[in-house]
Simulated assay, not measured.
Amino acid sequence: MDPHRVVVVGYDDAELLDIACVTTTLDAVRQIDPALRYDIALATPGGGPITCTSGLVLGGQAALERIRGPIGTLVVSGGLGHNAAADDERIVGHVRRLARESERVASLCTGASVLAAAGLLDGRRATTHWRFADDLARAYPQVAVDPRPIWVQDGNVYTAAGVTSALDLALSFIEADFGADLARWVSRAMVTYLHRPGNQAQMSMFTAAPAADHDMVRKVTDHIAGGLDGDLSTEALARLARVSPRHLTRLFRAHLRQTPGRYVRKARVTSAAQLLSTTDLPVARIAARCGFASAEALRQAFAKEYGIAPSQYRSVATTAG
């Protein structure tokens, strides 16, 4: 079988982990099955070395301007140098040219800026790292920026949130190219217990800092996290905070940009996802522990948040581990 050709576009101040997650994950295919492999090259302006954000220097393997198709997968890395790359007409022009000769086009993290500058995201849904999503949306209003998923596919164009989500995107490529079994073997080789679906949220609500500058809101969110199986109605939470339900809702909207009810539902679904991927508890037990009235109520909330059923989410976690 001819190798699937992958060209990774790098530039100064690119994120090394973006590049490594994709290249190392794809190269693992060759190590598991020598009959299958990706032909991977790092293309840089002029073919010279690039200095990554971390200060480490990578040697280019090919000059971007000399690359010719056909290409299986074109990947544009992200990094703090993305704005300079997006403003560089040579880089953008060659990415636009190579995209026409590629079966699949992808960006990692802020590399979405380069794809957007090349017009490749016009009219498409795309994601990027949550810290830079607003900047991308303002700079390119013709792009439907969604900061929530870890990666998004729109036609043959893929955008990922970057950093470790680049690994998840690479695993999805392997599954599409060589099947789910090989993708699971690579997942094990990479010591990642879960091949996350693209619609999983970039950031758990429990790792996102709450409004630490408002003691009352922090008290209520701490109470929610510690008692998901209790009465977490807006009225009950308002009694805890000693304010009216209306005032509590105003505070949540001001500091967390959502209502208390929405925050509670998301907290319960997030906790359920954690239990599904790390325990063998029955779905009904997980539902009860997370405060859902029934397994069916959990299924409905889970499908609304993640787009898949709890059993499907668990199946992915189990087979990938």
Rank of each mutant, 00 (worst) to 15 (best):
P210E: 03
V157P: 00
I174L: 07
L232A: 11
S204R: 07
D154P: 04
V220M: 11
A212R: 06
A211Q: 02
G198E: 01
A144P: 10
D181R: 12
I150G: 08
Q200E: 15
E175P: 06
T192Y: 06
Y158S: 11
T159Q: 07
L167T: 12
G227N: 14
L194I: 08
V157S: 01
A166W: 00
H195I: 12
G227S: 14
R184G: 02
A160W: 02
D177A: 10
A161F: 01
K219I: 09
P197W: 02
V143P: 04
G162E: 02
M216G: 09
A176W: 11
N199A: 13
V152C: 13
R148E: 15
G226N: 07
T221Y: 00
E175L: 10
A212P: 02
D231E: 11
D222Y: 06
P149Y: 08
Y193H: 13
S172N: 03
A189E: 04
M203P: 03
T159S: 12
I224L: 11
L171I: 05
G226V: 01
K219P: 04
S204A: 14
W185M: 15
G162V: 00
A176G: 12
F178P: 03
D146F: 10
W151N: 04
L169A: 01
A201N: 01
A209E: 10
A160L: 10
D168R: 02
R148W: 13
G155I: 14
M216I: 09
S233E: 12
P210S: 03
H223N: 02
L182Q: 14
L232Y: 13
Q153R: 14
A208M: 07
A176H: 13
F173Q: 00
P197S: 06
A180R: 15
H195R: 15
L228S: 08
R196M: 15
F178D: 03
L232Q: 13
T221D: 03
P197L: 08
A208S: 05
A212D: 09
V157K: 02
H214F: 13
S165P: 04
I174A: 06
E175S: 14
M205F: 05
I150T: 09
Q153C: 10
R218F: 04
V217G: 05
R148V: 15
F173L: 08
A183H: 09
I174T: 01
A189P: 01
D168Y: 05
P149L: 09
H214Q: 15
N199M: 10
S204F: 07
P197D: 06
A180D: 13
L169H: 00
A212N: 04
Q153A: 13
T159W: 05
Y193E: 13
